[in-house]
């Protein structure tokens, strides 16, 4: 590709450092797996249904993996983790 403007196109004077626009929480892609995690968690808790609570743990792991920016998702993930914690205890005692 012949650069028609032969002169060096670079203009160091015009360089502006990167200002990352703060993306608000609203236009983040919705974290479905976080939502499913909590939904399964509560269902598993209520109905003592083991599979549900295991699904909740998997969904929570997925939402943890897909966490984009920390401060927005941290609240959700911490919530999901506490729900898992209840369920683990609950799962254990509903076995015996």
């Amino acid at each position: 590709m012949s650069h028609s403007g032969g002169a060096d196109p670079r203009m160091p004077s015009a360089s502006k450092p990167y200002a990352s626009s703060p993306i608000s929480a609203t236009d983040l892609p919705a974290d479905y797996s976080g939502f499913f995690a909590i939904a399964f968690g509560i269902v598993g808790l209520m109905l003592r249904y083991k599979l549900c609570s295991w699904l909740a743990i998997i969904c929570c792991a997925q939402s943890l993996a897909n966490m984009r920016n920390v401060e927005n998702d941290l609240k959700q993930v911490v919530m999901a983790m506490t729900v898992q914690f209840w369920m683990c205890i609950d799962c254990l005692d509903c076995k015996f």
Partner: peptide
Amino acid sequence: EGQNIFKFYASGRR
């Protein structure tokens, strides 16, 4: 940004 989004910024050109 996250595990699958990468950004590259360049500046200083006419």
